[in-house]
Every structure is written in structure tokens, then in C-alpha cells.
Design a protein around this nucleic acid. Structure first.
Length: 443
RNA sequence: GUGGUAGUAGCUCAGCUGGUUAGAGCAUCAGAUUGUGGAUCUGAGGGUCGCCGGUUCAAAUCCGGUCUACCACCCCA
């Protein structure tokens, strides 16, 4: 036998059970997004390499599935959807209805070593609001993100949305006299601070703050202790920086919507969330698993400069993404993976005589044409075996087309859950079946 | 890219310090069962023990490499 060819590392097969779970997740995402008035879009899986390097810099190439196509073009499978979206909206900036509320469910690819929750191919639920710079857009996205998780049965005991603000951070650091470059360096140090030795953090900060490093770290500790808007306001007031005080209006607006939608239980202010990339410009948020590892489930934020960076008219933008892999993990650990076995409505049992087969097959075809799912044994099989198949396939109703029944112009229906049986004239097949499917048959 | 752990049937695993023809449960298929499913019993199929090489009279077992998975770094758009 030839060597068995497996899936590439980080890629998955989706046999029916896995596919059913995937589609279940997609369905919830789609339903929720539509219920929020978002419109679905999609884009090419393969894009010019520059689209991604333009946004994130040449360093990301090491994590891209990129190659040269036969026309000599540098191309890459998409690692995310945001640049595609920005292009699409930017190119149609003059004519799209604003605010743009769009979502996508897209397969994305990243060439990196896989581990739990991280594959090389995964599906992302993306939602974005463009053309609306105010906090209302961010609030709408937070709300959608929360509702999309709730639609799976997840609640505040399972996850928490941690909200932060890149604007607040930058103004704070500017207020301390840093320039943009230094401020960004400090952010990346702070971002990692939770995971590394405090002494190391101190060493990293020393060249920037000198002897004030200790004082800075104390201030950071106070800042990170903030968990709600009232505390944030108190912290800002104590600092006495005018720009930060101004910024509080946006926070109040954000939480006015979150409170109004009764989502406060899901949200927490957490300024330790900085998120890696420099292109975030305002509110940012991450959703974390509440129990156990505290893995990140979703993340997003405002990226007002990206559309312009891609060469279009400036347009405010904010968005988030959720991956299918971590979500499926979370659902599994929370015991919220539903039973996805989808049984057929009817299984038609038929005798092996020509008349029985003919009548049975006609019934199958009729039911199917009306959208009632129906299955049968492809090759003539013993009755007992056919019932077994009906059971295995999860049929709700078994229809029996046998010699005894046909001689009287009827067929028999058996409710596979109750074991109850009833007969009906073949002429009224559809009505009989619909009625029994709706109400079952008493034993 | 770096390091750690693991890999035996579709799944979960057993296989003692190397020793005939590699096992079990579940699952699948068939029969008991040619007009009634879930249960039970009987049987079958399914493995080059991840792959390549080495040591040995002899390797699933020991050694080296490699691939893959998981975990921790790096990164996280």
C-alpha cells in the first residue's frame, strides 16, 4: 500500500460529525450577526502579499502562507480578513451606506507551529463597523461579540470581556513626556509584564524612565487595579492630565450603551490589555475564558488609520474576530456541545416485491420533493434489517410499504420513539406523514 | 524558530526486565432474525506497533534520526 497521505500539519478533515459541529457554530454566528443588522460579505482567500505587509510590516511574512504564483506574483493566503475588508470598503467609500456593519465567516491561514487552539487553517467570525468614529460603534461590537457567545449557552461564568483603551494609554505616556516610539516600546513591555519576571520588566523600562522607573511601575499597578469606570475616573482624576479627563467622556458613552443593553455583567475595565499591534487606535477588548487557563477567545478594537494606510480616504473602523478552534474547545469544556445527530424524518421500509418497491420508492420521492427528508435501504433487505437501519439513522417515523398494507391501499406508520403505529391511505401519504411528524403516534 | 513529552486497530488502551503467529473493550460488518428497531449471543474484517536506519540469533520493546501530535517559549494581525 502506498504511504498514507495525511492532512498537512494544522489542517483538518471535517468528517460529518466535525462538519456538523462546524456548521452549527457558523449558523449561530450568522444568525446573531444578522440579528444585529450586520450584512455578510466575503473576499478572496488568496491576496497579493503587499496587502498584508502594508498593514503589519514585513516581519509578518514569516507567519504567512505566502508563495509566488505562476505569473511571478508574490501572493499569500489570508491570515485575517481585516485588510481585505478595509480595501473593499475603502474602494467603495463613496457609495457604501454608513455606518458599514459587515460580518464574515472566513477561513484564514497562518504558517506557524500549531498548539492547542492554534492551527494553520481556522475559521474566523469577523464583524466590523466602519465610518462611525464614536464609542457607540465599539459598544455595538462588544454587544455583538457577547451575544454571539451567549447564543451557544455561554454566560458570565464562562467568559469575561476585558476592555482597554489604546488612546488612554498613549495620552498617559505622552503626558509622562514620552514620544510615540518610546510609548509604543513601553506598551509592548507592559503587555508582557504579566508573564515575565518583574525584575526583567524593570530592566527593560530603566533606559526609558531612569530613576523614575519605580514610580512608573507603581502608577501602572494602580492603573491595572482599575476594574470599572468609576475607578477609572478616580484614577484619571488623581493623575490630573487634561487629555485623560477628556477621554473619560468616551468611556462613559461606551458604558452607557453596555449598561443599557444589560451587558455589564460580562464586561470589566482592564487596562492591562494592550494587544500587540500598533494599528489599534482606541478602545480594544479581549474576551477571556473565565475558568482554568483564561485563554483568549476573541479580540478586537478600533483601527481608525488602516483604511487610509491602504491608500483610501480615511475612514473610522472598529472590529473583532473569534476563532472556531478556541470556541469549540470552550464549548466542549463547558459541556455545551449539542447533540448534532440529525436524523431523517422518515425511513421507508418496503418489501422486496416489485409492487412494494414501486409504491415505496414513489413515497420516498414524493416526501423528498416536499422537503420532508426520507431515506430507505438502497438494496432490498430483510424487514428486520430495515428497521435497524431506520433506528440507526435516527428516523422519527418509519413508513411501512408491505404486501399486507398495499393489498388494502394503505401504508403503516411507526413512531420510532413511542413504538406507536397507525395506518393511512396511500392517497393521503403527505397529509398523514405531516400530521404524524407533528404530533407523533401514541402507543 | 527553540525546548519537553508522546505515537500499538476507526476510538480508548494493554503488551512485565527484548523471545513463537501483537491483544481487549467500544465501534463497524455478517449471522442467529424473509413483517417490526434499540438488547443478547456467535463470528468476521480491520495493524508492515508513525516512518527510516542501527544494535542483536531475535525489536512494538533498546539506540539514532525523522515525521506527527500535545505542552512550554517566540509570536499572536
Amino acid at each position: 500500500m502506498a504511504s498514507k497521505i495525511q492532512t498537512l500539519p494544522g489542517f483538518r478533515d471535517f468528517p460529518p460529525e466535525a462538519c456538523a459541529l462546524r456548521n452549527f457554530i457558523f449558523r449561530k454566528w450568522r444568525q446573531t450577526a444578522i440579528s444585529f443588522g450586520f450584512s455578510e460579505y466575503d473576499g478572496p482567500v488568496l491576496e497579493p502579499l503587499e496587502l498584508f505587509t502594508e498593514k503589519s510590516g514585513p516581519e509578518i511574512v514569516s507567519q504567512l502562507f505566502n508563495f509566488e504564483d505562476k505569473g511571478g506574483r508574490a501572493v499569500s493566503l489570508r491570515p485575517e480578513l481585516t485588510p481585505t475588508l478595509a480595501r473593499m470598503v475603502g474602494a467603495n467609500a463613496g457609495s457604501v451606506r454608513r455606518p458599514v456593519k459587515w460580518f464574515a465567516i472566513a477561513e484564514c491561514f497562518r504558517f506557524e507551529k500549531q498548539q492547542k487552539g492554534r492551527k494553520r487553517s481556522f475559521y474566523q467570525f469577523n464583524a466590523d463597523v466602519l465610518g462611525e468614529p464614536g464609542p457607540g460603534a465599539d459598544a455595538e461590537l462588544v454587544a455583538l461579540c457577547i451575544q454571539s457567545l451567549r447564543s451557544f449557552g455561554l454566560g458570565p461564568q464562562h467568559f469575561v470581556v476585558r476592555l482597554s483603551d489604546r488612546t488612554l494609554w498613549m495620552e498617559f505616556l505622552f503626558g509622562l513626556g514620552l514620544d510615540e516610539e518610546k510609548a509604543i516600546r513601553v506598551l509592548s513591555i507592559v503587555d508582557k509584564a504579566e508573564r515575565v519576571d518583574p525584575e526583567y520588566t524593570k530592566e527593560q523600562l530603566a533606559p526609558i524612565f531612569g530613576e523614575k522607573t519605580g514610580a512608573f511601575l507603581e502608577e501602572i499597578a494602580r492603573m491595572k487595579a482599575v476594574t470599572n469606570v468609576a475607578e477609572l475616573e478616580a484614577w484619571v482624576a488623581a493623575l490630573g492630565m487634561a487629555k485623560l479627563t477628556e477621554r473619560m467622556a468616551a468611556w462613559k458613552e461606551l458604558f452607557a450603551v453596555i449598561d443599557g443593553m444589560e451587558l455589564s455583567d460580562f464586561c470589566r475595565v482592564d487596562l492591562s490589555i494592550v494587544r500587540g499591534l500598533a494599528y489599534y487606535t482606541g478602545f480594544v477588548f479581549e474576551v477571556f475564558e473565565r475558568s482554568g487557563e483564561g485563554r483568549a477567545i476573541a479580540g478586537g478594537g478600533r483601527y481608525d488609520k488602516l483604511v487610509e494606510k491602504l491608500g483610501y480616504q480615511p475612514m473610522a473602523a472598529s472590529g473583532f474576530a473569534v476563532g472556531d478552534v478556541t470556541l469549540a474547545d470552550l464549548l466542549a469544556t463547558a459541556g455545551l456541545t449539542p447533540n448534532l445527530i440529525e436524523g431523517v424524518d422518515c425511513f421507508v421500509v418496503m418489501g422486496s416485491s416489485e409492487k412494494e418497491r414501486t409504491e415505496g420508492l414513489r413515497a420516498v420521492a414524493t416526501l423528498r420533493s416536499l422537503g420532508i427528508s426520507a431515506d430507505y435501504a438502497i438494496k432490498p433487505t430483510a424487514f428486520g434489517k430495515q428497521f435497524k437501519m431506520a433506528d440507526t439513522l435516527g428516523a422519527r417515523l418509519t413508513l411501512i410499504f408491505g404486501g399486507d398494507e398495499l393489498a388494502r391501499g394503505v401504508f403503516k406508520m411507526r413512531d420510532m420513539a413511542t413504538g406507536g403505529e397507525a395506518e393511512g391511505p396511500i392517497a393521503d401519504l403527505v397529509d398523514g406523514v405531516k400530521m404524524r411528524l407533528a404530533h407523533g403516534i401514541e402507543k
